[in-house]
Design a protein around this nucleic acid. Structure first.
Lengths: 132, 132
DNA sequence: CTAATATATGAGCGATTGCTCATATATTCA
DNA sequence: TGAATATATGAGCAATCGCTCATATATTAG
């Protein structure tokens, strides 16, 4: 997970002096901590990934697909939503390469295209279940 | 075709019953698949958990805190955001028991209160890095 | 061809989000 | 006590989200 921070040349605008009187880490401490932060690119794509999983409808769709491919209308029936709403969400998931379509006549079957995502979902689930 | 929904969903129009002419799984298949779906409670809390991680600012804050506790103004300096914005986000994270405050004079130091969340973050990160 | 069916998509709406700004609260120190 | 500092919070605004509705496209049947 060594994510190289690309912030070296483009030093952050450094309004750091306008926060509290001085940071309460010494300057070296702050620099050290800053050096260990994830890079902006990693932060963005990580947040984007989680944002996709952060909606109940998409969780339901992915969960439904985890049992095998389904056509749009069956997904809609399973998650109890309009086919249009499902289609919009599938477009998003398709755009992020999380699901993959397969045409079969008039029907389009969707399947998971990224098993890691389902692992993440399941790990999140065990976390949720472990909560006191 | 009594559609026994475990979902209590109060939506103004109820397009729930008929989608395409018939589902393209047979009725038994649909029922089986439905039976394997996550329950509404799990879906909601799972999505909520991921939603918290689905914002770059919160990812940065949690990442910063993964190196040890920090006071609000140092967090603000590290993530390069106003202290007010940081405080608002900390309130959210505090409400979800993801971070914990410790007062020290005028300063309030925040620390991670849920190591599982950081595990999730790191697992998400390895997923993101594995992407083609 | 036309009609019917399954899916995709654009517009637009109400709700939510993440920020800023102003202000309130808490703590220390003179 | 009163000024100064660190954090918290309420209001409000622009942007985004997830849906519905209308419509477009693709495929099959007659």
């Amino acid at each position: 997970m060594s994510d190289t921070l690309t912030l070296k040349n483009a030093r952050p605008p450094a309004p750091a002096d306008e926060h509290c009187e001085a940071t309460h880490l010494d300057e070296k401490g702050t620099a050290d901590r800053r050096r260990r932060l994830m890079g902006p690119r990693a932060v963005e794509s990580l947040a984007e990934t989680f944002r996709v999983l952060g909606d109940p409808t998409r969780v339901r769709i992915l969960d439904a697909l985890s049992g095998g491919e389904l056509c749009v209308c069956d997904i809609a029936a399973l998650v109890n939503l309009s086919e249009s709403a499902v289609s919009h969400q599938l477009r998003l998931l398709r755009g992020m390469r999380l699901v993959r379509p397969r045409r079969a006549g008039r029907l389009v079957f969707y399947a998971l295209d990224d098993s890691h995502i389902i692992e993440l979902l399941h790990q999140g689930l065990t976390h949720v279940e472990e909560q006191s």
